[in-house]
């Protein structure tokens, strides 16, 4: 908590009253929809009927909707697919990005400028939807999970963020490694990476959030709805409001656990919550790092 500077005037009454009101409204605009969705997902049939739809005041909370969704069926499968795509995709993207960022971090090395140019040029134009689709199609990747990873595996932005961080590592450290006879791979692993945990974490989380949220690639490349990731399920049953297929609630209805079957609305809202939770889990890490300036530093150049 810092205090007002001596030369600053007293805050006006309007400022003193207005600011908290505005800030509260902003925070509510973000938090309230999330709150309603979570409460509804945890509500019983009775509570939903009584509220006439979405539930604002929590009454009769139950986890029946989650038990139903997570005990097999469409959502369980989609969740698994999304988790696997995110994990494998992030590892792959992070791997190639770290390597290339280090490989491009030494101006004056062979082909440094043309290779950097190839990466930077991707900022200016994209290949377009139709040619990309035709390529993925001709590679035989339609309905293949690789189509959700490979076409979007490299983000030039993430690569440049990481590269500028690597370039800030003092040359003396790298030279000392070389004097000790280490090759470039050993220098990257033993000297550069241990110093770059923060930027690797942030870039990794950016990739992970990207894979988790990706919807358009699946819309283009995955026709088989047994292979849909979670975002496609969310789009079909929530945004387009198609009825959940029988068995979407899974084979177990929760009856075995002494739970009454969950109302349809609670099940829908539980799908929304399941899509949000992973983002909320990694969010504190992202925030901690980028407020420390990893990203801001890169933005400033």
């Amino acid at each position: 908590m810092s205090t007002r500077a001596v030369w600053e005037e007293e805050p006006t009454v309007a400022g003193r009253l207005g600011k908290p009101v505005v800030l509260t409204l902003i925070a509510l605009a973000v938090a309230f929809p999330l709150y309603v969705v979570v409460v509804t997902s945890l509500s019983s049939t009775k509570a939903v009927t009584r509220a006439g739809g979405l539930v604002v005041v929590p009454r009769e909370l139950t986890v029946a909707a989650y038990v139903q969704l997570l005990s097999g069926g469409v959502v369980t499968r989609a969740l698994l697919i999304s988790v696997l795509i995110t994990a494998i995709g992030t590892a792959f993207s992070l791997g190639v990005t770290v390597l290339a960022a280090y490989g491009l971090s030494r101006p004056g090395s062979l082909f440094h400028r043309p290779l950097l140019f190839v990466v930077l040029l991707t900022f200016l134009f994209g290949p377009g939807i139709i040619p990309s689709y035709l390529l993925v199609n001709s590679l035989g990747l339609i309905d293949h999970y690789a189509s959700l990873i490979l076409p979007a595996a490299v983000s030039a932005f993430n690569l440049i963020v990481m590269r500028s961080f690597f370039m800030g590592i003092p040359a003396e450290l790298i030279d000392s490694g070389r004097i000790d006879g280490a090759g470039e791979f050993a220098i990257l692993r033993r000297i550069v990476l241990p110093l770059s945990k923060a930027v690797v974490a942030v870039v990794g989380l950016f990739y992970a959030v990207g894979y988790w949220n990706a919807f358009f690639n699946a819309l283009l490349y995955i026709n088989d709805n047994n292979k849909w990731p979670l975002q496609m399920v969310l789009r079909t049953y929530i945004v387009q409001q198609q009825p959940l297929p029988t068995g979407a609630g899974g084979v177990v209805t929760g009856a075995g656990l002494g739970l009454a079957p969950a109302p349809g609305l609670a099940i829908k809202m539980a799908i929304v919550v399941i899509a949000i939770v992973p983002v909320l889990l990694v969010y504190p890490f992202i925030q901690r790092h980028f407020t420390k300036g990893v990203i801001i530093g890169a933005v400033k150049g």
């Binding site: 190639v96 280090y102 595996a153 490299v154 030039a156």
Partner: peptide, 18 residues
Amino acid sequence: DWPLLLMVLPVIVLLGLF
């Protein structure tokens, strides 16, 4: 510099292909 070139290769291949 060949190790550096080798490191950049996967990204160049991915960008080239996709």
